[in-house]
Design a protein around this nucleic acid. Structure first.
Lengths: 136, 136
DNA sequence: TAATAAGTCTATTTATCAGATAGGTTAAGT
DNA sequence: ACTTAACCTATCTGATAAATAGACTTATTA
């Protein structure tokens, strides 16, 4: 299941992608427009800023804005920041690899093989999709 | 993330797929061979039996066995039984569709569009893979 | 028919995490 | 100074995954 954090995060990013570049949008504006709890959205945007996807400005006329052109923002990045590893199992994760304690041999693990396929196909989709592609 | 339930379930099914058809294998045998907690595995196999994938026999010489040829068992079925819906979001689920309360219009939802692609590619993999394909 | 070997079922516990909520702090404009 | 809006920390709640325990049922076999 996709977390609400990720769902809301993508919605917020798409909203920002529709705006003019570098024009700050307030949290409250996004919150109302996308039906997202203000406080929850606040923490999500914070995460996105810390990850380097968003810039922010305080005080009057402040808000959040994209730091890059939507075409340059791959969903791979977005998903990793919001949802975590793309892989469904740590032993097939490219960036967060971890061995399974129960598994004596990955090469002979049925789950491992299946999940590599799933990872690759999802990676392909996220890699080929940019924020710009999500604007409708 | 893939739940341990699903992970163990697939391992157990693969183990059974390697056996002769209709020859019962005891929970304890699978548990030891695959390093899965006996009690946890017990409940997983129960689920698989109730879903119609496995048969069981009590008493001496009893155990669990596949009811169909491994080639006939699609991973789509296995995943749905163990992990739940393939879709990452209910609004793109074929079998468990549910509207999002926050979303006024699915046709204009960026998440919706992205997740349809993910669903379809995963569905393709699970649909083209059978238990037999997982035997190494 | 008693003993044993297996699966079946219910309940409880523990841990973790998503999601929500509250309240105070800091920086930028006017 | 005052206001506005982002920033940060802490806490709570509920749901769910995973593990554990113990008693029940059915089949075999001696």
């Amino acid at each position: 299941m996709l977390s609400k954090k990720t769902k809301y995060g993508i919605k917020a990013l798409t909203f920002l992608a529709k705006q003019e570049l570098n024009v700050p949008v307030q949290i409250a504006t996004i919150s109302q427009s996308e039906n997202i709890s203000l406080k929850f959205l606040e923490s999500i945007l914070l995460t996105l800023r810390k990850s380097g996807l968003l810039g922010s400005k305080k005080g009057k006329g402040g808000g959040y804005y994209l730091l890059k052109n939507p075409k340059e923002i791959k969903m791979t990045t977005v998903m990793r920041v919001l949802e975590g590893p793309i892989a469904m199992v740590p032993c097939v994760s490219l960036n967060y690899y971890e061995r399974c304690d129960d598994c004596p041999d990955e090469a002979e693990c049925s789950v491992h093989h299946l999940m590599i396929q799933v990872r690759d196909s999802n990676l392909k989709i996220y890699g080929e999709t940019s924020l710009a592609d999500l604007i409708i």
